[in-house]
Simulated assay, not measured.
Amino acid sequence: MPTTARQWLLNGHPRGRGIADDDFKLVETALPDPGAGEMLLATRYLGFDPAQKGWMENIADYVAPMAIGDVMRGSGICEVVASNGGKFAVGDYVFGTTGWTEYLVSDGEGMTKVETDLPPTAVLSVLGTTGLTAYCGLFKVGRPVAGDTVLVSGAAGATGSVVGQLAKIAGCRAVGIAGGAEKCEWLVREAGYDAAIDYKAGNVKAQIREHCPRGVDVIYDNVGGVILDDMLANIATGARVVICGGISRYESGGLPTGPGNYFNLIFRRASMAGFIVLDWASEFPAIRKRLEGFVADGSLTYQEDIQHGFENAPETLQRLFAGKNRGKQMLKL
């Protein structure tokens, strides 16, 4: 049984700038023996989300602040390798908030057993925060009805790609915004979007007008900034604008400036709302079953980008902000 574990600690608060290598510190720490009711968990996969930068900055107030020297916060899949009367059996796979550590001692609080017919990594991607965020943001906040036009920014990302497919399942027209011809081609060919807009090609506002001639009924925004402003310029009457994330701000730092076209919310009698997916935690088991059913019947596909090696955790997180990932970003230990 291991007596030590490597861990990545927070070593800097990246406010007003991109994440740097020295924002993290690799250490080796002693592992305590599992006490009564505790288990030793071996981390097999780590999951990565843009929100982690907000946690590092201590901007996100829906989670506890992070101090220098804390184990970097994050989700993971673990195998139970030893148990002292714990709630899970040796050999079980569980998932939840693990932090960036090779091993951890846990009483199982906040951990869920991996129970799916899909590959286990699905609990961090299409059945994890990624899929749940897509589902709750679209259906709880966006409230699409058949025939609506749904416009998604960051559409080739892990969450955005699921949003478009769920919109299609709901009978909507789905248009995605992504960076580069390759991502746009994937959106239409694999993710089932009706059309894709390449923001790198320029004049996003004109491209939106071309592909959404009747206006946009539901905006699902993962980007913020100029892209959000261009989307707001073409909303339909009664539109719902869902604010999920603001990846455009993560490299520049600070909070994004307010959109110049927000007055369209008045002219179009529209609404704009943010959300935190944890608000629907009680519904997660039922939503996971629905999402798994969509995957099983072929109406929902998903991508996973799996890097390798615990020492590469900081670099793997930074892939999200360089647009290098294809689907849910993960790391196999």
Results as ranks from 00 to 15, higher is better:
143 R>W: 05
205 K>Y: 09
150 V>R: 12
144 P>S: 15
175 V>C: 11
190 E>W: 04
203 N>P: 00
204 V>T: 14
153 S>G: 10
208 I>V: 15
172 C>N: 00
149 T>M: 12
215 G>A: 13
125 S>F: 10
154 G>E: 09
191 A>F: 08
217 D>G: 14
202 G>S: 10
177 I>K: 00
167 A>C: 03
213 P>C: 07
145 V>W: 00
180 G>P: 05
210 E>K: 14
153 S>N: 08
165 Q>L: 07
148 D>N: 14
182 E>A: 09
207 Q>C: 07
162 V>N: 07
146 A>P: 02
161 S>P: 00
139 F>R: 09
218 V>F: 12
144 P>D: 13
176 G>P: 03
206 A>R: 06
141 V>I: 15
192 G>C: 06
207 Q>L: 12
227 I>P: 00
218 V>E: 01
159 T>I: 15
180 G>Q: 10
195 A>T: 01
143 R>K: 14
172 C>Q: 00
183 K>S: 02
145 V>H: 03
191 A>H: 01
217 D>T: 12
201 A>G: 07
146 A>M: 11
217 D>C: 15
201 A>D: 02
172 C>G: 03
186 W>E: 05
186 W>N: 06
197 I>V: 05
183 K>W: 04
194 D>E: 04
203 N>A: 12
227 I>Y: 01
222 N>P: 03
194 D>L: 02
225 G>E: 13
206 A>H: 01
179 G>V: 01
176 G>F: 02
127 L>Q: 08
190 E>M: 11
164 G>V: 04
166 L>D: 12
206 A>M: 10
168 K>M: 14
190 E>P: 00
202 G>C: 11
167 A>Q: 03
136 C>S: 13
206 A>P: 02
126 V>A: 14
197 I>R: 00
130 T>C: 11
194 D>F: 01
227 I>T: 14
175 V>D: 13
209 R>N: 01
176 G>I: 03
190 E>F: 12
216 V>Q: 08
145 V>Y: 01
144 P>Y: 15
212 C>G: 09
215 G>Y: 08
218 V>M: 12
220 Y>T: 09
160 G>A: 13
184 C>D: 04
137 G>Y: 05
213 P>L: 03
211 H>C: 05
204 V>Y: 10
135 Y>V: 12
143 R>P: 01
188 V>H: 08
128 G>P: 09
213 P>H: 03
138 L>T: 04
201 A>K: 12
171 G>F: 11
160 G>D: 12
221 D>F: 05
207 Q>V: 06
189 R>N: 14
150 V>P: 06
139 F>G: 04
177 I>R: 00
208 I>T: 05
164 G>C: 02
224 G>C: 10
135 Y>R: 13
129 T>I: 15
131 G>V: 07
195 A>S: 13
225 G>Q: 11
128 G>M: 12
213 P>T: 05
206 A>D: 04
218 V>G: 02
170 A>I: 12
127 L>K: 10
137 G>N: 04
197 I>Y: 00
161 S>N: 05
184 C>N: 09
228 L>H: 07
169 I>C: 01
186 W>I: 06
208 I>P: 03
219 I>W: 09
